[in-house]
């Protein structure tokens, strides 16, 4: 039980750290990393809960939930990253247009590509 409690507590700690980072930091990429750390904490907790004592077979139900959860979390992260990169490209484009309308000739004509993630 001791090992399960320590492992599960570490999961709760990770969850809390991720939640704090998610709430406090402004950039979406940081929020996304915090969100993923929260998810890892939940996975830790589930694995700890599945522990049935040394030598005994672990509970398969939480294991199955974590297994699919990891793959789903990866795909959701990919969607969020794609959204984030489009947002950044759109923001760069908008600031370009603004600079263009104010007639700033020193500005490079298309900086959107330089700001785009991950081709940078």
């Amino acid at each position: 039980m001791n090992a399960a409690f320590l492992y599960g507590s570490a999961g709760i700690l990770l969850f809390a750290l991720g939640l704090w980072s998610f709430l406090v930091h402004e950039p979406l990429l940081r929020k996304l990393i915090g969100f993923n750390i929260m998810g890892s904490g939940v996975f830790h907790l589930f694995i700890a809960v599945a522990h049935n004592g040394d030598g005994a077979a672990p509970d398969p139900v939480p294991h199955a939930l974590v297994l699919t959860g990891i793959v789903v979390a990866v795909s959701a992260t990919a969607l969020a990253l794609a959204l984030n990169s489009r947002l950044e490209a759109a923001a760069a484009k908008a600031s370009d247009a603004e600079a263009g309308s104010r007639g700033a000739p020193e500005r490079a004509p298309s900086s959107a590509h330089h700001l785009r993630w991950p081709s940078q």
Binding site: T68, V72, S75, A76, L79, A82, S85, R86, R116, S119
Partner: peptide
């Protein structure tokens, strides 16, 4: 869950061409 994976990919594809 497989459907969630599929929907996430459709979301990514709907955002435009790949970099």
């Amino acid at each position: 869950e497989l459907a969630v994976l599929l929907v996430a990919l459709l979301g990514i594809w709907s955002l435009g061409p790949a970099p």
